[in-house]
């Protein structure tokens, strides 16, 4: 466990040393939040009267989606793909840590440093955009942050899956784009899933994206302990499921490396 903690701390330290990149991320997040808010203001002015979501709640909902999006490390799939394509992954056999575990710890370390910074600036901006109001279920924020971390783990495992898919696809980038768009749409990062037709809502909630995105973010305006526990449970199930698939892929990969060399 100590080995993984060391990897996590190393990733966290690296993030702190890249403040310029981090500030660019903050800026990007604020711009996107402003655009989302502008979009929803226009929509609300025309038709949103029938919807139950209040503008303040919506801004915070979008902020949570942005935290998930901008808090994760970029290029993780690319680095894994490079390890697979160049055969460098063979060197990992010598290390006393699991390759997948190490990559997950790197993601977690990055997220844990970025989260408070993005939340600080994003929170101030969200309060400003919503005219000084806080969301309906603001007191549930600590629980939401824990669930958000679980979401991050689910999505990072998905990214590791994309990186390892280079073993079969040669190039993981197109799959990454597709998964990223599925995250936006099926995860409800742009639009709450309740706006979708029923079939699309059902489809979204049967993928890991539904619980990782909408499942967590909607708690900011519709919190209940039952929903929180259900979301947490489903996220844990997805973590176990995807980890199993990754383990299998890793075994296949190692077999290939053992036959063909690094």
């Amino acid at each position: 466990m100590k080995k993984y903690l060391t990897l996590l701390l190393a990733a966290a330290r690296e993030q702190i040393s890249h403040l310029k990149t981090l500030s660019a991320r903050v800026l990007l997040m604020l711009i996107m939040l402003t655009i989302f808010r502008q979009f929803w203001m226009v929509v609300k002015a025309e038709t949103l009267d029938s919807q139950t979501i209040q503008p303040t709640d919506l801004i915070w909902y979008l902020l949570l989606g942005c935290l998930l999006q901008y808090g994760r490390p970029e290029g993780l799939h690319r680095r894994i793909e490079e390890d697979v394509r160049t055969g460098d992954i063979a060197y990992c056999l010598l290390r006393p840590v699991s390759y997948i575990g190490a990559k997950l710890c790197e993601s977690l370390g990055t997220f844990l440093v970025r989260l408070p910074i993005l939340l600080f600036f994003g929170g101030i901006w969200a309060i400003y955009l919503s005219g000084g109001e806080l969301p309906h279920d603001f007191q549930a924020f600590p629980v939401i942050l824990i669930l958000l971390t679980l979401s991050m783990i689910v999505l990072s495992l998905g990214t590791i899956f994309v990186g390892l898919s280079a073993l079969f696809l040669q190039d993981s980038l197109p799959l990454f784009w597709m998964i990223q768009k599925a995250e936006y749409i099926l995860g409800g990062l742009f639009f709450p899933l309740t706006l979708y037709p029923q079939w699309l809502q059902t489809l979204a909630m049967s993928t890991p994206f539904g619980y990782a995105g909408y499942g967590v973010s909607h708690l900011i305006y519709e919190f209940s302990w039952i929903s929180a526990v259900q979301t947490g449970g489903m996220l844990l199930l997805w973590i176990i499921g995807i980890s199993g698939i990754l383990k299998l892929m890793y075994v296949l990969l190692m077999r290939k490396v053992a036959i063909n060399g690094g």
Partner: peptide
């Protein structure tokens, strides 16, 4: 793969906006 996935990628985004 790049061509097919890029088309799918655009299709997914379009479905989302269609729903909205």
């Amino acid at each position: 793969g790049r061509i097919v996935f890029m088309c799918l990628n655009n299709l997914i985004l379009l479905v989302g906006w269609w729903a909205v």
